[in-house]
């Protein structure tokens, strides 16, 4: 701190408190709305203080859902989201570790070519090539399966690049020592490289779990069977599925349940999350 300026600091706190209020406001409103009964929303503007129906709203969405409007109980959707996010996170990390290992520690023909093939995937988000990707998945019979939900999204180059970057910083002496002791490539990988990368793997996991959990367009396209709906796309069905006004108290209870898991991941693993974010993208 260059100079001590009390009014400036006070102003800074004021700006930040206002900022935090703006950032928190939408979720506060959602939590409040999820504690009122349905009738509250017919009477006009929603209240800003909690009501007394929270318990029954949450138990309704968890156990019954809104079967009449075509949305299943959210327990199953939460499970599907969890499976999809885990498969994407673990799958991405596994295939990226292997390919980064190959690119850094081996010399072989077409190495540069493969590097570019992987690099290409960095560029194109699913959203720009949805129709042809959908056709591929459909012709492989992967609609309405967990494999179809996760495998097409596993191919992305970010994790490969992070691990490549990290492997380049591992001292050469490690490899020499391992070779002197007679360790083969896979033993070196398993006993030295992977244990050294644990922090990076964890940071990557946080980012990829959130990425997988928050997928929207892809599950919307390839699931028609409601036992494969994920929670984020399920909300859209709740909002637009009914002809009348949405049942706000139930929608908001679902929104809170859908947003909670990734938010908890970030709050509990904040340091890893920040590391993963700032290091992958730079």
């Amino acid at each position: 701190m260059v100079e001590n300026d009390r009014w400036g600091n006070l102003l800074a706190h004021l700006i930040l408190i206002l900022g935090v209020a703006v950032v928190v406001f939408p979720v506060y409103v959602a939590i409040i709305a999820s504690t009122h009964e349905g009738g509250t929303f017919l009477r006009g503007v929603m209240p800003l203080l909690p009501g007394g129906h929270g318990w029954e709203n949450y138990s309704t969405v968890i156990s019954e859902g809104r079967s009449n409007a075509g949305t299943p109980p959210i327990g199953g959707m939460l499970w599907n989201s969890f499976v999809m996010a885990m498969m994407i996170a673990v799958g991405k990390i596994a295939i990226s570790l292997l390919s980064a290992f190959a690119i850094v520690y081996f010399r072989f023909r077409f190495r540069l070519f493969f590097f570019w093939v992987i690099f290409l995937t960095l560029m194109l988000p699913v959203e720009v090539r949805i129709v042809p990707t959908f056709e591929v998945v459909a012709s492989l019979g992967m609609l309405n399966t967990y494999a179809g939900l996760s495998i097409p999204l596993i191919a992305s180059a970010t994790a490969t690049f992070l691990f490549r970057q990290f492997f380049m910083t591992v001292p050469e002496e490690m490899l020499e020592a391992a070779r002197v002791d007679g360790a083969g490539p896979m033993k070196f990988f398993k006993d030295i490289l992977v244990p050294l990368s644990v922090t990076n793997i964890a940071a990557m996991f946080v980012i990829m779990f959130i990425y997988g959990w928050n997928q929207y367009l892809w599950p919307l396209l390839i699931t028609t069977d409601d036992s494969y709906y994920t929670i984020v796309m399920g909300i859209q069905r709740m909002v637009t599925g009914a002809d009348s006004e949405p049942l706000w108290h139930l929608v908001m209870a679902t929104v809170v349940m859908a947003a909670l898991p990734p938010i908890l991941v970030i709050l509990f693993m904040q340091r890893l999350f920040v590391k993963g974010l700032t290091e992958t993208e730079k």
């Binding site: 935090v20 929207y216 984020v232 859209q236 909002v239 929608v251 947003a259």
Partner: peptide, 23 residues
């Protein structure tokens, strides 16, 4: 302050949309 400002990253775009749509 950082903790309070970073968590919206975890909210899916679709959910962010529904939240503001409601407000």
């Amino acid at each position: 302050y950082t903790t309070f400002l970073v968590w919206p990253y975890a909210v899916a775009p679709a959910i962010a949309g529904v939240l503001w749509w409601f407000i």
